[in-house]
């Protein structure tokens, strides 16, 4: 090894030591926050699973093709995804979201009682639920893109995203990027899009977890948490989703896996002004699933429309109930 390399390594080590011992006010970075959230998530999930001391069985009645059947599954552990594994591979690979007793249910959310189960996908005759779920997932992935795109000296704070509205042409994430005067060039937008686009190469599951509001407050220092918790079914729980290492609050449901994505674009970043959160950036995007292989001409046409400012309401604490009732985040 040449001398100068050793010298450089020693220099780096020294600079690291200096930073660790000499800085007074340590600024936060997204990677540190992500790590902390992951630790908390893993711990909470392990705690919840440890709470199930005795396995109980539930009867799950599957409706629809390829066959109607009754499955005997584990209460609190088995998910619709596990049910699909027992029935047919097609259901495993193509299902976006499940219907449990007529209510949308995540593919990876454990079942808790005897129920009727249906699997939905994008080519269903009434694909409204899968479309909305995909749109919400698009917003969720925008959060992932924004937290991972920038260097550590930019601490991106995500704010919230509104209820998915497919007809508006784009999904939204409102965030504080800490960069006031940044107008992204087309190349920069492409770079942001690529982070979301690459997810389709991996089979990353979206894991939901219902946590107590106090746990959620340790994960997210957000003023919205008490409001969202108040509107939940139990009154004090928050649904948190993990995709790989990214964790965010959303009411859900989200799609089953990232390999269902076909195209993903971040189309525009607009400036908006929130009465409670100050100046924010409204990041917009568009997403298409593997099941609908869209022609590039159509996709570009739709992307162009998605650059227009989305008319969704601006996040504010005043519209508490409304925001939490509609909201994903």
């Amino acid at each position: 090894m040449p001398h100068n390399v050793i010298h450089m390594n020693a220099g780096r080590l020294a600079s690291r030591l200096v930073r660790r011992f000499c800085t007074q006010a340590k600024s936060l970075s997204n990677s540190e926050v992500t790590k902390k959230r992951n630790d908390l998530f893993t711990k909470e999930k392990a705690r919840q699973i440890a709470n199930i001391s005795r396995l109980e069985k539930i009867q799950v009645q599957h409706i629809g093709p390829p066959e109607e059947c009754t499955l005997l599954m584990n209460k609190g552990l088995s998910t619709p995804f596990n049910c699909a594994m027992h029935i047919q591979e097609l259901l495993v690979t193509r299902s976006v979201v499940a219907l449990v007793n007529g209510q949308p249910w995540d593919m990876h959310k454990p079942l808790v009682e005897d129920c009727e189960l249906q699997f939905l996908h994008f080519k269903d005759e009434d694909a409204k639920i899968p479309n909305e779920v995909l749109w919400r997932t698009g917003s969720y992935i925008l959060g992932y893109v924004l937290e991972n795109a920038f260097k550590d000296n930019f601490y991106v704070e995500l704010c919230s995203f509104p209820k998915p509205d497919v007809r508006s042409g784009s999904f939204v994430y409102d965030a504080d990027l800490k960069t006031q005067h940044w107008q992204p060039s087309p190349t920069e937008l492409n770079c942001l899009s690529a982070i979301g686009f690459k997810l389709q190469c991996y089979d990353i599951k979206f894991e939901p977890l219902e946590v107590d509001a106090s746990v959620a407050l340790t994960m997210f220092k957000s003023a919205q948490i008490p409001e969202i918790a108040a509107t939940s079914a139990t009154g004090n729980t928050i649904t948190v989703y993990r995709m790989g290492t990214h964790i965010d609050i959303t009411r859900g449901p989200l799609i089953a896996s990232t390999n269902l994505i076909y195209r993903y674009s971040v189309t525009a970043i607009h400036d908006i002004e929130s009465p409670d959160y100050g100046p924010l950036k409204r990041v917009q995007g568009i997403i298409m699933p593997q099941q609908l292989p869209i022609h590039y001409w159509t996709y570009e046409f739709l992307s162009e429309r998605a650059t227009k400012l989305n008319p969704a309401p601006v996040p504010s604490l005043k519209s508490k109930q409304k925001l939490a009732a509609e909201n994903g985040s």
Partner: peptide
Amino acid sequence: REVKNNLINVLIKAA
């Protein structure tokens, strides 16, 4: 099959 609720069709109709 009914295709008006297909995601692409919904987006194009809105556009």
